[in-house]
């Protein structure tokens, strides 16, 4: 969507922008070399990513939910939403993740206003 979303100054939920990169992000089902990708590999790649993330984020507090946007719309491709039990855990994670890298790319982390993912679609 093209709405301007507000960024709260504190929230239990963090948004990690464009963090997950699908192996077939350029053309669906095909890798950067133009070779078809085995769906199983895609799944494995995704699970590895999810695991990495979960492990790292667990260091900062109890995770309530962890959502990875696996879609190809430019504005939110690979966005990761992580909701902590406590706002201060989220703040701690934000502090610790800012300025770091994941897989050679800078981590872009911000608070997100989303607290209920069932209600999180843009309308």
């Amino acid at each position: 969507c093209s709405r301007l979303h507000t960024k709260p100054s504190i929230s239990p939920t963090l948004l990690l922008s464009n963090m997950y990169q699908r192996p077939d992000m350029i053309t669906p089902g095909v890798d950067a070399q133009g070779q078809p990708i085995d769906p199983e590999k895609m799944q494995e790649h995704f699970e590895d990513f999810y695991e990495d993330l979960f492990e790292e984020l667990s260091k900062y507090g109890e995770i309530e939910s962890l959502n990875v946007c696996d879609n190809l719309a430019d504005h939110m491709v690979g966005n990761v939403y992580v909701q902590f039990r406590e706002e201060e855990h989220a703040a701690n994670a934000l502090k610790n993740l800012t300025g770091r890298f994941y897989a050679g790319r800078p981590i872009i982390v911000d608070f997100s206003p989303v607290t209920d993912f069932r209600e999180a679609t843009c309308r």
Binding site: Q21, P23, M25, I26, D31, A32, Q33, H45, F49, D52, E56, R100, F101, Y102, A103, G104, R105, P106
Partner: peptide, 22 residues
């Protein structure tokens, strides 16, 4: 993948994403 720093050549602004990098 955490703390995997980018290759030095990719440190220039605007050149951080390498397509197909997995």
């Amino acid at each position: 993948g955490f703390d995997m720093a980018p290759p030095t050549s990719a440190l220039m602004p605007g050149a951080t994403t390498v397509p197909g990098q997995v």
